[in-house]
Each structure stands twice: as structure tokens, then as C-alpha cells.
Design a protein around this nucleic acid. Structure first.
Lengths: 203, 203
DNA sequence: TCTCCATGTAAACATATGTATAGACCATAG
DNA sequence: CTATGGTCTATACATATGTTTACATGGAGA
């Protein structure tokens, strides 16, 4: 990513601040006004360069169709909160979306990710408590021992996932609960995704 | 806040989704296109009503100047990540800001709040692990037993806070560590704020 | 039934906004 | 020095976009 000149940085900063304040991007003439320019051309030049360098994206011709690259200022680092784990399916249906929440620490890819509220105390050993939100990255397989959201029959739960040649084991992180062992022919288990993060509000 | 009709809700939802996807709001004609309308008037009517009911804000006449009310889609629900607890002060200096992160579950007031990275394992019993981010709401006092960020002399730590007539006790949630007891005349303790939430990325 | 209201069509219209052409100024690298 | 690129003025133009007037439809409730 090419280095920006001081001036270019000023333009980018202004666009960011404007979006922060208004929640939509500025028009070219508004930028022009902010920098006290007599022509829109200068602004256009800067925007074109910021786009060329990858700091901005835009839709040509459309009004205020600017997007600051770098996720922090993009809308789609929000993911839906789709329901409660172990609350039965379908957990991924659109109608189940309770809210849209942002993801702290803009992760590399939020695409497709979603939050799920945890019920039960089976993962306290992993510092995941009842009521916590887990951020789920959907994927069909997880690494040995990773914390996953899995579907068992009609229910979704959070467990530590182990796969062996002849069976799958789902371990709770709570001595109160025994591992769930699943062999061929048993009720079907499907991995929904990996738990990428945990969020908890206190009180 | 007046209840919305199903149709109005659809329009609001679409605007949200559009912003999520593009990071800037749709134009009236884009909304029109999405709902397969033959006229822009219907859209205008809906937007006017959504504005009247307080679900949207907008700048009249300006292109794409829509804002979904509820802050969730506004930029300013971000709070700074200012450093690491127990890493020494000053933790609130501007120069210490490492990043700006969003707060899931749009809390009532993010104003003044900030994230702090936890070092050490003294709060594992409260499911707060090394490396977690704690969201801190600055306040000079906390309730009995609440988890607080406190400054002891030159250092900031996360502890459970108890105040008695003659002393203050700071309890770890880890049997390895004894409570810190502080009486008048001892090193000064100052409450920086209450831990309002915890965020952890796995791996 | 009649009215009201949410919803929509149709067609202009006004203006907000992006784009283009032509050229100037200036610092800096070659 | 000379060329290049970054920055900007001036002006005009094209079009994307919001606004408005007039009227139609269909369901819910008085």
C-alpha cells in the first residue's frame, strides 16, 4: 500500500471523521468546502488517488458512494445475533436474527460470521459462561480440540471438538458433564463453525 | 416510538442491510428498485414516515443522507483501546490509544468508555483471562463486589472491589493471590472504573 | 357503506453531485 | 535545468437523486 502524502492523509482523515459524525460519506463539494478549495477538481484528484492506492473504494457516478477501506469504518464488520445455542434450530434462519452487533478488533473476515448467545454452564472451564455471546465463524470442520458450535440432531451446542478414526467426541469444559461420543450410525453431528471470540456483558 | 407496519419494517431492514453491505446508505431509486416499485413516491413516503417515527434521520435534499437511528449504525459507538492493565500509567493518555474498537450490543452510553487488555491470571475465577479485553466505564466508585479497574500507586489492575469502614480490599478471583488490603495511610488506591464487559478472541 | 390511511402509479421538476477539459503553480528527482 | 507529479483554479456539463402534484387501489374500522 503506497504511502500517502500529508495532504492525502488529511483528505482521508476528513472523510473518516465525516462518516463517524454523519454515518454517511461526504459529497465532493462538502469536502471541497471543508478544505476551502475553489474547485471540485482537486477533491476528485485526491479521491481518485486514494482509491488507486487502496485506501478508499467507491461507486463511480453515484453520490456519496465512498467507503473507507480498512474495515473499521465499514458497516459490514457487524454480524447478526441469531439466537441462543442449545435453543433448538433453525438457528441460521433469517427470521431468527435478533440484532446486528459489531465485532471488536476488526477481524480479518467477518463475512458469514454471527453471534450466538450461550445457554448453560458446560463451558465454564473455558471461561465461557451462561449468557455470553460467542462469535461463530462458520466452517464444516474444526481443528482437534477447538471450541466449536455443533448441531446434534435438532440442537446446537458449544463444545470442544475431537475427532478420532472411529468416533467424534464433544467435551464440555465442566466436570459435571460427560463427553458426548458419537459413532457412525448414531445421531448425526454437524459442525456449524468455530468459536472465534467471546463477549460478555457484566451485570 | 410508534410501531411500524410490516411494510415499513421491510424498508428499514433493507436500508440497514444496504448500509451493512455498502457502508453508505441507498438512494431512493435503489430502494425503489429493490422493492420493484414503479414510482419513487412510495419510497419517499416510507422514508418520511420512518423519519417521523424516529427510526431514521436524514438531511433533506442531500443524496443518500440517511442515518439509521439507534447508534448501532453510527460510528461513534467505538471506544479506544488504551493499553494493558498492570502495565503502568498513564493509561488514559491520548498517546496510549492503540486502536478504536466497536462495542457489541450497543450499550446505553459508550461515552468515555475504553478497552483495556488484561495481563495476568488473577481474575480467571471470574472468567477473565490473560489477553482479554475489558470494556471499562470510568467512574470514581463501584458497588460492593463489582469488578473494577483500580490504580494502585503507579499500576492499574483488575480486581473485585470491597469497601469497609476502615479499609478497602481488592480480591483476585484466583486462589493463588491473596486479597490486597488497603487502609488509610497506605499507598493510595483510586478506582478508575467498572468493568462493563469482557471480550476475548480465541487462538 | 363510507371514510381513512397505507400503499402505490405516473410524470415532471429541481437540484445535488459527480465528471471533464484546459491550464497554472511549485517542489523535487533525474 | 527540465520533467514529473502533486495540488489547485475556472468553467461547463452530465446525470444521479430528491421532491412534488395528481390520482388509483384496497383493506380496516366507524
Amino acid at each position: 500500500m503506497k504511502k500517502l502524502t500529508a495532504r492525502q492523509q488529511q483528505f482521508l482523515d476528513f472523510i473518516r471523521e465525516y462518516i463517524d459524525k454523519h454515518s454517511f460519506p461526504p459529497s465532493i463539494r462538502e469536502i471541497q468546502g471543508h478544505f476551502d478549495l475553489r474547485s471540485t477538481k482537486g477533491v476528485k484528484d485526491h479521491i481518485d488517488r486514494l482509491v488507486a492506492c487502496g485506501y478508499l473504494k467507491r461507486v463511480d457516478g453515484a453520490a456519496r458512494a465512498l467507503e473507507v477501506v480498512g474495515s473499521r469504518y465499514k458497516g459490514d464488520d457487524r454480524v447478526p445475533l441469531v439466537g441462543t445455542v442449545a435453543a433448538g434450530l433453525p438457528i441460521l434462519a433469517d427470521e431468527n436474527i435478533e440484532d446486528y452487533l459489531p465485532v471488536p478488533s476488526g477481524p480479518p473476515r467477518t463475512r458469514g460470521m454471527f453471534y450466538l448467545r450461550v445457554s448453560g454452564d458446560s463451558m465454564v472451564g473455558a471461561a465461557i459462561l451462561e449468557g455470553d455471546l460467542v462469535l461463530v465463524r462458520p466452517q464444516p470442520f474444526v481443528e482437534q480440540g477447538e471450541i466449536a458450535v455443533v448441531r446434534i440432531g435438532d440442537e446446537a451446542t458449544v463444545k470442544r471438538f475431537f475427532k478420532f478414526s472411529d468416533r467424534i467426541e464433544l467435551h464440555s469444559e465442566n466436570p459435571k458433564y460427560d463427553p458426548i461420543v458419537c459413532r457412525r450410525g448414531d445421531e448425526e453431528i454437524r459442525v456449524i463453525g468455530r468459536v472465534a471470540a467471546v463477549f460478555r456483558e457484566l451485570e
